[in-house]
Measured scan of single mutants.
Amino acid sequence: TTVKLGDIKVTFDNPEKAKKYAQKLAKIYQLTVHVHGDTIHVK
């Protein structure tokens, strides 16, 4: 599962960890989390 934020891409083996990371980023940057299959976009 890949978390994308602009040019930053972080890949996790564990989808749950990816989701938590995405939510953490979203909170920090006051953005929202969008899940598209294996990719989680923070924008």
Rank of each mutant, 00 (worst) to 15 (best):
Y21H: 04
V42D: 00
I8T: 07
K17F: 10
V10M: 11
G6L: 07
A22F: 05
H41K: 05
V33S: 01
K24D: 08
K43S: 12
V3H: 02
H34R: 07
I28S: 04
N14E: 06
L5F: 14
G37E: 06
E16V: 09
H34K: 09
K4C: 15
G37Q: 05
K17E: 14
T1F: 13
K17M: 13
A22R: 01
A26C: 14
I28N: 04
G6A: 06
K43H: 13
F12S: 00
A26L: 05
T2W: 05
H41A: 06
D13N: 10
V10Q: 03
E16T: 09
D38A: 11
K19P: 01
V10A: 03
F12A: 00
K9D: 06
L25P: 00
Q23G: 04
H41G: 01
N14Y: 04
D7R: 15
T39S: 05
D38L: 09
D7W: 15
V3I: 06
P15F: 15
D7E: 11
K43C: 15
L5V: 12
A26R: 05
G37P: 03
Y29E: 03
Y29M: 08
I40K: 01
D38S: 12
G6K: 06
K4Y: 14
K4Q: 13
K17P: 03
K24V: 11
K4R: 12
K24W: 15
T1Y: 13
Y21R: 02
V3M: 01
V35R: 04
V33M: 08
K20E: 13
V3C: 12
D13F: 08
T11V: 13
L31Q: 03
I28Y: 13
G6E: 03
A18S: 00
K4W: 14
N14V: 05
L5C: 15
L31T: 05
V35T: 07
I40F: 07
V10P: 01
T2V: 12
L5A: 03
N14A: 04
Q23E: 14
D13L: 11
K19E: 08
L31A: 07
V33L: 10
Y29Q: 03
I8W: 15
K43D: 08
N14Q: 05
G37A: 06
V10D: 01
H36A: 12
F12P: 00
V33D: 00
T39D: 03
E16F: 07
I8F: 15
K19G: 04
T1D: 03
A22Y: 04
D38R: 10
N14I: 05
H41S: 09
V10W: 15
T1K: 05
